[in-house]
Design a protein around this nucleic acid. Sequence first.
DNA 1: TCGCACATGTAACGCGTTACATGATTAC
DNA 2: GTAATCATGTAACGCGTTACATGTGCGA
Lengths: 183, 183
Amino acid sequence: MTNTHYALLGMLTIGPLSGYDIRRLIAESTQAFWSESDGQLYPALAKLTELKLITIKPTPKKSSRGKKIYSITPAGRNELKKWLNQPPATAIVRNEMLLKLFFGANIAPDILRDHIEKVRYETKAAIQQLKTKKQNLTADESELKHLPFWQMTLQYGIRLNEAKLLWCDETLKFLKQKEESVK
Amino acid sequence: MTNTHYALLGMLTIGPLSGYDIRRLIAESTQAFWSESDGQLYPALAKLTELKLITIKPTPKKSSRGKKIYSITPAGRNELKKWLNQPPATAIVRNEMLLKLFFGANIAPDILRDHIEKVRYETKAAIQQLKTKKQNLTADESELKHLPFWQMTLQYGIRLNEAKLLWCDETLKFLKQKEESVK
DNA sequence: TCGCACATGTAACGCGTTACATGATTAC
DNA sequence: GTAATCATGTAACGCGTTACATGTGCGA
């Protein structure tokens, strides 16, 4: 049981979903802090089924395409809760941007500026995207009990990206000063 | 050539170092945004030597332990610069804490609060550590040209963690209100 | 009828971690 | 002499990605 498995169990607490649905949900709702690849998703669903933590609903009408609708079982809910109750592991991060910056003495100053300018641009776009997503989420009335938690994760993204933006501005300003002092 | 290889090349622009030195440097200076395990480090050094991007210095005096001192070659510097000039790839992140929060509707409210409280505590500690490290860095005069860049990476950590702390406070407050409204 | 979105899966690969293994030198 | 630190490496394993493979149903 990896985090991938728990992520899938968690998604199925929202309601019965197909693999494809989960895939879309992840892409739309959690891609900012969680992602799954196909190569993980489908084998993980198979394993969870085998463990009887999820079940395949009997296809309601005609076999509509090859679609399989999964539901979480009581045993599945139990496993999920056990995992949720454990404090989250502190992640080890690897930030390529900061690694390059750490070796910044070896880069031409204008190229480094370009890099940070690019990060700044992406960060601004991310903030905008997260904010609109947070707005739209409020409008949507389905799955009311999940709403506040989903908002919190979006708020996290907003806050962290705001800080990143601030840092980009600080750093660009600093780099500009540095270059001028060299002239 | 993976990021690990470039990280090692980068470290060797600071000066000639042994594998153990690099290991220590990473643990002391970049662990907040970059880490390497032994299982990567030594094979990577071997490969870089084979590619002649780094060389083993003739052991200066008596073979002091089994120590090998590596230096970057001109070809190595060239490879490093090519990598540094490319804009950093936007990383895919996986944040277990946010994933658990996303499924927060399935957790007892007080346990969730504990989780965030723990994050808050760790974040405060991280800020303090980064700030003192930034102070001490200024005092140290070796490797002057690297200093501003190292400070920028620390500042990044400080800014991001400050935002995280703010978010923790916001979220804890919000959760408390939520619980009271249920009563 | 043609293309796109839906829908599920497998195979290969590689990065990175963990655990194991070994031995030298220094400080107490 | 013995513990801690210095110092280098290997082996096994597993997670996760990428690319490949296949097929359905709907709308223009």
